[in-house]
Design a protein around this nucleic acid. Structure first.
Lengths: 199, 199
DNA sequence: CTTGTTTTGTACTGACCTATCTAAAATGAT
DNA sequence: ATCATTTTAGATAGGTCAGTACAAAACAAG
């Protein structure tokens, strides 16, 4: 019994997420967010109560969609453990070339947020910590599966290997943002997998 | 035949560099820079003509000091190739624990700048590109030395391995900023070296 | 001690920042 | 059609931003 919204909240959230993803938190003004979402200031502040709140929701949404895509790869029972990790790295390279702006990779919002905000925004830090934990769990599962099958080395425990793969992913994203081309990223991924292979 | 400066330009530059390093470019205001350096606005604008210019000089200084320290490790003829790379990774871990603020690692200014500015600041991007090239050259040299001695795998070319090590370093710095402790970083480094080892 | 030059502190400028306020517009329920 | 409620647009507020203007202070050279 009141005026209905003329916009889709999730579409607006996606647009805001993209804006933060491309330019970072500080460099994205509320004016930028209005233009990115197509909403007026009132609508934004009415729906998401502040810039910081909107960022939190955008980050949460990014984590959800990203992890949903990665869990499918890492729990794919059709593949062996190491093949799942290889597929994950391939997916990440693909993502770096899907999400570009002016010929540059925009990287990964969680990595970008770790760099920009983790030290001075406890809420963002807590979200990143939880997200890291779930990603490590997914990785550990795939890695343990590979260790059981014998194609991933059993000389290091799954948690260590998971943290290593996670770090390599972060490094690949930085490399992509630094201008690395596809062949370079693929070579990094291939080399990184050498450390996982059973020998 | 005029009033002399009462401050040391290089000390001021170091202080500014540290401020940018901790908080990033956008989140460091000119007021912050005054407080960090102890200079007044006039002195800052008189010496460094703008915030952006000061940032450029701070970044250049960071790159110089960082690369000077790393070249010593990577060209240490007392060590084999792989030991040099191992020493480099150990040095980087050490650095992550030397440079902290409120219990958080402040990471690496070049990585932070790649994330925050590379896409929209062509000058910073050019500096980062040159810096990457010199770091890859240093790494390649050490890696080639290890390949000649037989302790680094010859199955991948030195350039690929250099890019891999560089990516791992970036990933370790992200991990550190994300809260990884020393043992975790050391385990990542050890695992990463498995991909370099001749087998 | 005067003159010329540079540095320095402080006040200021105009733009942009996040966020709010106000009132008109829109719509479902009665 | 009227009412209650919400969304929306636009103006506004108060603060902070990078950068400048200006005059006082500090010093070296003569």
């Amino acid at each position: 019994m009141a005026r209905p919204r003329t916009f889709d909240e999730e579409r607006a959230l996606d647009a805001a997420m993209h804006a933060f993803w491309v330019n970072g938190y500080e460099a994205t003004s509320t004016q930028d967010l209005c233009e990115a979402t197509g909403l007026g200031r009132s609508s934004i502040y009415n729906t998401f109560s502040s810039k910081h709140d909107l960022f939190r929701r955008a980050l949460a949404r990014y984590m959800e969609t990203m992890n949903a895509a990665q869990i499918e790869i890492l729990e794919d029972v059709e593949r062996t453990g190491i093949e799942r990790v290889r597929a994950l790295l391939a997916r990440i390279i693909e993502g770096e070339f899907e999400h570009r702006e002016d010929g540059h990779s925009i990287g990964c919002l969680t990595v970008n947020t770790t760099v920009e905000l983790a030290a001075r925004d406890p809420e963002a830090a807590a979200m990143l910590e939880r997200d890291l934990a779930t990603r490590l769990t997914m990785l550990r599962t795939a890695i343990r599966s590979g260790q059981r099958d014998g194609d991933i080395t059993a000389e290091r425990d799954a948690q260590t290997l998971a943290r290593y793969v996670n770090a390599v992913i972060g490094g690949m994203r930085i490399s992509a943002q630094g201008g690395a081309d596809r062949a370079t990223l693929e070579a990094i991924a291939d080399t990184a997998l050498d450390a996982l292979a059973a020998r």
